[in-house]
């Protein structure tokens, strides 16, 4: 299934984003370095990079959880200064409220917004259905497997009906089999619900399997090294020669980064 170039509205734009941290011993660490990125509506963008390259920090800035040291990230032209209801975020793990049953977890976004109980529970039930978790509505997070918890986390993000979904290594702690299953599920949901997704991962395979575009970041300070456009239709087969070729190329780029050989 190919996505046409009909809607090319920029929904998210990062302009010269830098993030500097100060360590406890007073050292200055440049975590994100002049990142510029435009994300189109309904785009599925994956960011890959060596660990510690600032990709998660960039996502946190985009979510409005942290300010950029300089530069800005804009949502439809407006600078993001705090979390916006139009932008959702799915974490790697431990993000569900452990004292709430699954259904109340999913309904928590609408609850914060002041939606009536009956209405928000209906909404939560709908999204639990979307992720195939209806029968676990009354369960508590600790009763679920890792994959199930991430399904619930995705449903919770969707229940807020965001335009952009940020995902910070959402499948990073799952076993290989569950991970592949969840990737397929995510694509299925994405194709029916039409969201813009910005997805951070350290798995090149995951990025190539999912994304319209793969952003490769350099080692710290995290800069954008290259953006690969992927024209393969979905569902993608890992047996496809161009799939392997692209995966190889990105892996090589990352290897260079890790070895400290800048080009």
């Amino acid at each position: 299934m190919s996505r046409g170039s009909i809607d090319m509205t920029v929904i998210l734009s990062a302009n010269q984003v830098c993030k500097i941290f100060w360590t406890n011993n007073g050292d200055r660490i440049r975590a994100v370095d002049t990142v510029c990125l435009s994300v189109m509506e309904n785009d599925f963008v994956c960011i890959v990079g060596p660990s510690g390259c600032g990709k998660s920090t960039f996502l946190r800035i985009t979510a409005g959880l942290e300010p950029a040291s300089s530069g800005d990230v804009r949502f439809r032209g407006l600078e993001i200064k705090k979390p916006l209801p139009q932008i959702g975020l799915v974490f790697q793990e431990y993000s569900l409220f452990p004292w709430l049953p699954v259904i109340d977890n999913v309904a928590s976004g609408p609850e914060f917004a002041g939606m009536k109980k009956a209405k928000r529970l209906d909404l939560a039930r709908h999204y639990l259905d979307v992720v195939g978790m209806t029968e676990f509505a009354a369960a508590f997070p600790h009763e679920l497997s890792g994959g199930m918890r991430q399904r619930v986390a995705i449903a919770r993000a969707f229940a807020n009906d965001p335009e952009i979904l940020l995902m910070d290594e959402p499948f990073g702690s799952l076993d290989a089999h569950t991970r592949i299953l969840m990737q397929k599920e995510l694509l299925r949901i994405w194709e029916t619900h039409r969201k813009t997704i910005l997805f951070v991962t350290h798995s090149v395979d995951e990025a190539v399997y999912l994304a319209d575009r793969v952003v490769v970041m350099s080692a710290r300070p995290g800069k954008i090294k290259e953006i690969h456009k992927i024209d393969m239709g979905r569902p993608r087969s890992r047996a496809n020669p161009s799939y392997g070729e692209l995966t190889d190329r990105i892996l090589q780029q990352l290897e260079q980064e890790v070895m400290g050989l800048k080009n």
Binding site: R60, A63, G64, L65, P83, P85, I87, G88, L89, F91, E93, Y94, S95, L96, F97, P98, W99, S108, G109, E111, F112, A113, R156, A157, N160
Partner: peptide
Amino acid sequence: TLIDSARVLGASELQVFRKVLLPA
């Protein structure tokens, strides 16, 4: 992560206290 999740989901500072910090 729980506090960040709540904030991303639209919780106000007061809601973070009442709905996340206190129960947690």
